[in-house]
Structure formats: structure tokens, C-alpha cells
Simulated assay, not measured.
Amino acid sequence: MGHFTMASLPIPKVIEIGETDSEFFAVSERVPGDTHLDQLNESEMLVLLPQLFDALYELQMQDLTSTEKVGLWRPEGTGRSWGDELLSIAEPRDRLAGWREKLDKFSREASIFDAGVLKLGKLVPHLPEVRGIVHNDLLNRNVLVSNKKLTGVFDWGNAFYGDPLYDHALFLYWWPWFPQWQGIDVEGIMDLHWVKRGGAPEQMKERLLSCLIHIGLDHIAYCAFRDRTVDMKRNADQVLLYL
């Protein structure tokens, strides 16, 4: 990702990777920053969020044709369609071994999860095949800020090729979880962003809805796996709103 760095989206290059006896490591170039994006107050976020949306848009304007398929970093060009990638949320995952068995202990949350998968199944056939780079983790202390400007966007370990609106959906999904931002009209900021770009992308409503449901399902599964019952139930409640 360091190859895609630009003034509006500074991405430090990784200069060394390796393995210890029990862990892996990556060393990158140093980037400055006074705080993280998710620690900003309301007035600061009002300044930074439009910058970030503009930067993500500029990222998609770069040449991303090194692969043809979507998914979690498949540089050899193999992978699923975007719709199939979304629906794979219900499949077993090596990194979350046993998540479904744990989820099934909670009948309400399991039924909401299954209803979400069914809803995705109805949306997927009508979604356009749009391909870009998705960071997928911007609200987890991975964006540095200084003097009301983005100074570093790092930790692309959860990034994938897919619909770039997924990063927008992540802000919509997690917004209620940040009490300090509840006075901000995040949807209005997004609308203004697309006005500057000549109009909203095709089928934006359906694309965002599919991403929102997928995000919720992903975190229901993750929280079940991690035995984080309270967060699992909260994510299930949020998915229910989209159904």
C-alpha cells in the first residue's frame, strides 16, 4: 500500500517484515501525529471526515488493475465475485474456528444472523461489480491526525479488494458507538462529498445496505467467537435495524 501514498492519503512504506519465536512483526516508515481519528471531538471530526472521504476517493482513481477479482489480497488474480464474497460471511473461517457453534448458543442472535444472510442473498444479484481497495479498519486507531490534517493511514492488514463504499458503510455502522460525534450529520457529509463528485454512485443505497449488513454479521460472528456477549447482542440489534 505504500506504493499508493499521496499527499492527501499518506501511507508509510513497510521497510522490514519478519518473525520472532512466537510472533510476526512489520516495521514501517515513521509518520507524525498528535492523535488518532477515533479520538477526535465533534468540531475536529467535522474538519477531518471530509478530508478522509476525499482521500479515499483519490485512492480509487489510481491504477488498481493488478488483479481482477475481489477478496482479501489475492494478487494472483483469483477470487470470488463481490456478491459471493459478501455471502461467504456465513461460511466457516480458520481465524474464527467454531464461531457458528458459539453463536448457536444464543437463539435470538443466531436467528438475526441468518435473517441477515437471507437479506444479503436477495440484494447480491442486483449489485454492480465494483472493485477498489477497502481499508476496512479506519476506526481502530489506524489514522493519525495533526493540525487538522491527516498525517498517516496505516495497518492495511484487513484491507481487501471490493466495493469502496464499504469504508463509507463502516462509518455509518459504527457512528452510534461514538457518543462524542452524535451531533454530526455523517450522512449529510457523505451527501456533500458526492455532490462535489458530480452525484452519488450507481445503486448507492443498495450497495451501502449490503455493506452495512455484512459488517454487522461479521462482528456478530467475531464477538461470538471471542465470547463478547454484550457486543454480540448490540451488533445483532443493529443488524435488525437494516432488515
Rank of each mutant, 00 (worst) to 15 (best):
Asp114Glu: 15
Leu127Pro: 03
Val14Phe: 03
His219Asp: 15
Ser107Cys: 03
Pro75Lys: 06
His214Arg: 15
Ile189Gly: 01
Lys119Tyr: 03
Leu240Asp: 12
Arg197Asn: 05
Lys233Glu: 07
Asp54Pro: 00
Leu192Gln: 12
Glu19Gln: 05
Gly183Asp: 09
Glu109Asn: 07
Gly216Cys: 01
Glu91Ser: 05
Gly183Arg: 06
Leu150Gln: 04
Ile15Phe: 00
Thr5Lys: 07
Ala169His: 07
Tyr242Gly: 00
Ala90Phe: 03
Phe160Trp: 03
Trp194Ile: 14
Ile215Met: 06
Lys149His: 04
Pro50Asp: 13
Glu91Gly: 01
Lys196Pro: 02
Asn136Arg: 10
Val195Pro: 04
Lys69Arg: 08
Asp227Leu: 15
Val117Met: 10
Met232Trp: 09
Val130Ile: 04
Gly83Tyr: 05
Asn136Glu: 05
Leu172Trp: 02
Glu85Thr: 08
Ala115Thr: 12
Asp114Ser: 15
Asp63Gly: 09
Pro75Leu: 09
Leu165Phe: 06
Glu19Ser: 06
Val70Thr: 06
Leu52Asn: 05
Ala110Cys: 01
Leu241Val: 12
Pro92Trp: 08
Val230Lys: 15
Asn158His: 14
His126Gly: 14
Phe154Asp: 04
Asp114Arg: 08
Trp99Cys: 04
Ala110Arg: 01
His168Leu: 14
Glu101Tyr: 10
Gln203Ser: 15
Tyr222Asp: 08
Gln180Arg: 05
Glu42Tyr: 13
Lys233Val: 08
Asn140Gln: 02
Val70Met: 04
Asp167Arg: 03
Ala7Val: 07
Ala224Asp: 11
Val239Ser: 06
Gly18Thr: 05
Met232His: 11
Gly18Arg: 08
Lys205Thr: 14
Asn147Ser: 13
Val47Gly: 00
Trp99Ser: 08
Lys69Trp: 01
Leu192Arg: 06
Leu212Tyr: 12
Pro10Lys: 07
